[in-house]
């Protein structure tokens, strides 16, 4: 197990270095960083001096090494547009995005898994048909459309939920949370649901398909032949066996919830990293783009590592060495 984790960690480092390389390349190949920083009236000599100061004349590997070294310490330089350290900007925005992602992941799991189990167990009921048809809508409608429709209904027509922003936030150290205030909680409902809808339908369909598969297996038949009650057969034996693929997909999806909250954040004007990133693109604010890229990659890598460790906890077959496992 330990050697497996060490191997995974090494792979993660490789992934992070590759992403860092792409991010670093942004600086050098998307426009001239010096022209991005200074005004038009800066002289050529001053530009040259700045270039020297910033180490832009150093050999490529030295520059890359410095970039990685700084990035490891969370230093991505100054934003061209905001004139503030990128790390501060991101630290300010990250709680908003993470809270949104966390809540929507929670919603999609808490609704998706029971719905998947229900539709698998009651394959022919009318409710199942309604849910399955509804889930098709969830998969096929684009997020922004659902977001706008929700704003129209809950925000404009019924006026029960705020249409934009995070509401009031409370600072816990450097972490700003909207989960402790009424307006904050009300504000997160619509964006979180919008973001969760697609993941929820995906998880539901996955759980359903896996569950149907598992219910056909011999050990379920044998469990029923031993007279085990329905509850135990369905949940203790069947559901647990569906979890491995569900964990994989959920892991990947949480990553993409964080990474692609951008659209939802724009629709609801949610002050998260996605919004910051969109603005950075329109301003060609390369340090922010680079930092965002590295951050998201880090999230993916960490989540996948957790997923791999979860496999070990769920499935005993992976825990033993292949040698003793072979019959």
């Amino acid at each position: 197990m330990i050697s497996f984790i060490v191997k995974r960690l090494l792979q993660s480092v490789m992934v992070m270095l590759t992403v860092a390389f792409v991010a670093f390349a942004l600086f050098n190949y998307v426009g001239d960083p010096i022209s991005n920083m200074v005004g038009q009236d800066t002289t050529f000599a001053e530009r040259e001096q700045l270039r020297e100061q910033l180490g832009l004349n150093d050999p490529f590997l030295v520059q890359f090494g410095r970039f990685v070294g700084n990035a490891v310490q969370g230093d991505f330089g100054l934003s061209y547009h905001h004139k503030q350290p990128v790390s501060n900007l991101i630290a300010e925005r990250m709680p908003a995005t993470l809270e949104l992602s966390f809540i929507s992941a929670l919603i999609s799991l808490l609704l998706g898994i029971p719905l998947g189990v229900y539709t698998a167990l009651n394959r022919d009921s009318i409710m199942t048909k309604i849910i399955m048809t509804g889930s098709l809508i969830g998969v096929s409608l684009p997020t922004f459309l659902i977001g706008i429709l929700m704003i129209l209904l809950f925000g404009v027509v019924w006026r029960v939920l705020p249409t934009f922003g995070r509401g009031d936030v409370v600072m816990l150290g450097w972490w700003s949370t909207g989960l402790l205030t009424v307006t904050g909680l009300k504000s997160i409902i619509m964006p979180a649901f919008t973001l969760a809808l697609f993941q929820m339908t995906l998880i539901m369909r996955l759980v359903r398909a896996e569950m149907l598969e598992v219910l056909r297996t011999d050990f379920i038949k044998f469990a029923r032949a031993r007279g085990l009650p329905r509850r135990s057969v369905n949940y203790r034996h069947a559901l647990k066996n569906t979890l491995v693929p569900v964990i994989t997909i959920t892991g990947l999806q949480i990553g993409s919830i964080i990474a692609f909250a951008i659209i939802t954040e724009s629709v609801f004007q949610w002050p998260g990293m996605g919004l910051l990133f969109i603005q950075a693109i329109s301003d060609v604010d390369i340090p922010i783009m680079a930092a965002y890229l590295v951050m998201i990659a880090l999230f993916f890598v960490v989540i996948n590592l957790i997923v791999d460790i979860l496999y070990f906890l769920v499935d005993p077959r992976l825990r033993v060495d292949r040698v003793s496992g072979s019959h």
Binding site: F222, G227, R236, H237
Partner: peptide
Amino acid sequence: KRKLRGKRIGMIFQDPLTSLDPLQT
């Protein structure tokens, strides 16, 4: 019927490799 199963009538299936829940001891 469920109360009979296992208690009064036991059943053994063909494939021992798939008859047991792989995730439980």
